[in-house]
Amino acid sequence: MTIESYNDITDTQYDALQEIGSIGAGNASTALSNMLNKKVTMSRPKVMMVDLAKLSDLIGGPEEPIVGILITLDGSIKGMMMFAMTQASGRRLANLVIGQDTENMRFNDIDKSALKEIGNIITGAYMNSISMMTGFNIISSVPHLAFDMAASILSVPAIEFGKMGDKALLIDSSFDEAADDIDGYFIMIPDLESYDKIISKLGL
């Protein structure tokens, strides 16, 4: 079927997205565990359709300082992916990768490359799960990083969703590594044509 906008997603399609999310999360936690050499688990991700106007309230409120890692997609599937988390979570993730313990909220170049690497791993894991389920070849850009207010950073995916409808599709995923809780949102934004392709390939 052809989908006019994201507003028209059915329950079955929703389940398929949830499945993509679960496999993606599984891949991501394995990749992170290997990289950090310690067990990182990810809770079963929640797929959500959110009104565009409410998107910026999700991660601690519109003015909450967050980190956004954005990757653009090309190949059979076009669009973008974003992994967003509070800067506090970003700090903990960077610390884990670098093996340091600081609460300094200024991110230096090493922190930034650590976060980009994490972004690569997480978005790559989700991309592989989509590739696996659909057989599509997806090419991703290098990760782009931004630190700013939640509403400002989320305006970028919101605008892309805005071209197609009034809702945004996102996957809420949280990592558990010992006591450190790292909560992040994975936002998948295939363009409408690519979304159609994914859905029809999954036979929905």
Binding site: L52, L55, P62, E63, M149, A150, I153, S155, D166
Partner: peptide, 20 residues
């Protein structure tokens, strides 16, 4: 976001975190 409103003095009107 994707919203509009009007306002008269002495009230003020605000939007949080304008990005693009």
């Amino acid at each position: 976001m994707a919203d509009l409103n009007i306002c008269s003095a002495p009230d003020s009107i605000i939007t949080l975190g304008l990005g693009s």
